[in-house]
Structures are given as C-alpha cells and as structure tokens.
C-alpha cells in the first residue's frame, strides 16, 4: 500500500475539518496595545489562558489544552535558552514564531501519521514604546501574521474577522487599562458569538440595527460567561521598576468593568 498525493490532499482536508471543528468552541483571546503596555484578555472556565513566556513576551491561545501546553513550553524553553546563552534582547516574538514554532506546527500539520495541533495562538511582544509593540497570530498549519495595535486568536476565522472589525473601529477608545479591558471583553464576546454561529452570516454588509442587536448579544454573552467563568487579563507593563513586567490584573482592577455585567 502506498501513500499517494491524493491521500495527502485528503488527509490535509480531513485534518483541517477536524481541527476547526474542535477549535470552534474555544474561548477567544484578545490582545490590545495601550500606552501602559500590552493587555491580553480572555475568559476561562478551568485552565489559565494568558501566559508569560519571557520578560517581554506574553502568549494566549485557543485549542486543545495539551497542545497549548506543548507550544507554551517550547516557547518558554526557546526564550530562556536563548536569553541566557545570548541575551534577553535577542528573544523576540519574530524569532520565536518564525524560526521555532511555525516550522514545527507546519510539519506536524502536514504529517499524516501524527496528530496535528489543535491550536490557534497569539503572541505579543512589548516594545520600548507603544508604536513598537508587536503581535503575532499563529495558526495550526504554521501560518502566521504580524500585527500591530491589536490582534486575536479565536475559534474560527469568521469569529476572528468579526473581532478584528470591532477592534479596528473602536481601538482608539482603549486609552487606559479599564477601557482596554472593556473593549477586549466586547471583542471576546463577539468572537464567542460568531464561533457558535458556524458559517457566519453570509452577507458582509451589516446595517445599524443588526449592529445594535450584536452589542446586546455581546452584553448578554458576557453576563452569562462572567457569572460562570473567570475574566483573565494579563498585563505586560511598559514602565515598571519591577524585575517582572508581567502580571495578572487583580480583581479590584477588573471590578469597574465587570460591574457593568453583573
């Protein structure tokens, strides 16, 4: 028995369907760059979603928890080995995603005899100034894109696009931590809604009425999810005297936003 190009195509297609089906229900992750630093927000039921990778790198993902762990650990390993043997300045998201993770994911995805990664991840790198903050969105097939200002990882591409639309039109409102958490949660809820509605709406043009309904729905989803889950907001702080720039925002810092949904 031999493995033909046809089999390969077939396997890629089946794998893609399998992965996307399993990603769909994942809780999205939203990254926003603000003057204070980089904020990465999600809502979790069980495991943590936002992780510190290195001094200036933060990571969040949707997918199979053990796949997320594999990518997280590989990232931490690379960053620390490189940071120690060379310098922390040489540990960049670009090197991590482009040289280490992307090729490995691509290989796992294309290899029909191994389990592919059920994974869509977001890496953010804190710059000296807000203009130099960077995001890298990485897919299960190794494809990655570099973004600035904001980025997301969600259960479906449709959901990601809707979230990006919202962030694109509203990111200027996110000037401080509170307003950024508020916007991130709205984007998160948008992603959650659209991942559920498989196939999306069909029509690209949305009238104002529909927009309003969506916001209502987003608030509804948030109320529901905040009651049952935990909002997680990781901040990589730009100007801090502390050695460790990363921290999770405390409950009292999230309170002003969460109160709106309680």
């Amino acid at each position: 028995m031999s493995f033909t190009p046809y089999d390969w195509n077939q396997s890629i297609q089946t794998r893609t369907e399998y992965i996307e089906e399993r990603l769909r229900d994942g809780s999205p992750v939203v990254g926003i760059s603000i003057p204070d630093g980089i904020l990465m927000v999600s809502v979790h039921r069980a495991e943590r979603k936002v992780y510190e990778i290195y001094d200036r790198l933060v990571f969040g993902a949707v997918g199979n928890q053990s796949d997320i762990e594999t990518v997280r650990n590989a990232s931490i390993d690379f960053a620390h080995r490189e940071g120690f043997q060379r310098s922390p300045d040489d540990v960049t998201a670009h090197r991590l995603v482009g040289s280490v993770l992307s090729p490995a994911l691509k290989k796992a995805f294309g290899d029909p005899f191994n389990a592919p990664f059920v994974f869509r991840g977001l890496f953010a790198e804190l710059g000296e100034r807000q203009e130099t903050d960077l995001f890298f969105a990485l897919g299960f097939d190794g494809e990655f894109k570099r973004e600035t200002r904001y980025s997301v990882a969600a259960g479906s591409l449709e959901a990601e696009n809707r979230m990006i639309d919202l962030l694109h039109s509203s990111v200027d409102q996110a000037k401080d931590r509170t307003s950024a958490v508020r916007l991130a949660l709205e984007a998160w809820a948008t992603g959650k809604i659209h991942a559920r509605r498989r196939g999306g709406f069909g029509s690209k043009a949305r009238d104002e009425e529909e927009e309003e309904v969506e916001i209502l729905t987003a608030a509804h989803v948030l109320r529901e999810e905040i009651a049952e889950g935990t909002v997680e907001a990781g901040l990589l702080e730009r100007n801090t005297p502390r050695e460790i720039k990363f921290r999770l925002l405390r409950a009292d810092e999230l309170q002003p936003v969460l109160a709106e949904y309680r």
């Binding site: 992780y51 990778i53 650990n73 931490i76 620390h80 940071g83 120690f84």
Partner: peptide, 15 residues
C-alpha cells in the same frame, strides 16, 4: 544570570 533565568524559568513553566 543563570539564577535569574532558573527562578523565572521555573515560575513560567510551572505557573
């Protein structure tokens, strides 16, 4: 340098 990485590596890996 080793110790700094070692403490942080542990904290980041083990949460």
């Amino acid at each position: 340098r080793y110790l700094k990485h070692s403490f942080r590596y542990y904290a980041r890996r083990e949460l």
